[in-house]
């Protein structure tokens, strides 16, 4: 079962610091080639820990789009 909610990164504002990658308990978010963070949608449970600490303020926890 996938969670109802999920983290979404605004790539244009991400500073690729890696705060989210380091805090995520599930390893569901990683910095992609030093450019921006990418969420692995199948793993993310939408807990919001990454969004709480993101210094760029560019993560939002949203309702998971219907498959």
């Amino acid at each position: 079962m996938l969670s109802k909610r999920l983290a979404a990164v605004d790539k244009t504002r991400c500073v690729a610091c890696g705060v989210c990658e380091n805090i995520c308990p599930l390893g569901a978010i990683k910095v992609h080639r030093g450019c921006y963070a990418a969420v692995e949608t199948g793993r993310c449970v939408g807990c919001g820990k990454c969004a709480k600490l993101c210094p760029g303020g560019c993560i939002e926890v949203k309702a998971r789009p219907e498959a």
């Binding site: 500073v15 690729a16 610091c17 705060v19 080639r33 030093g34 450019c35 600490l53 993101c54 210094p55 760029g56």
Partner: peptide, 26 residues
């Protein structure tokens, strides 16, 4: 603000992200 707000505008962070973006041409 946030614990690592500095990283949002740290010159090293900006410079390395800029280089990565150039290298991986978005």
């Amino acid at each position: 603000y946030k614990p690592r707000t500095w990283c949002a505008f740290c010159p090293m962070g900006t410079m390395t992200q800029g280089i990565c973006k150039l290298k991986n041409k978005e």
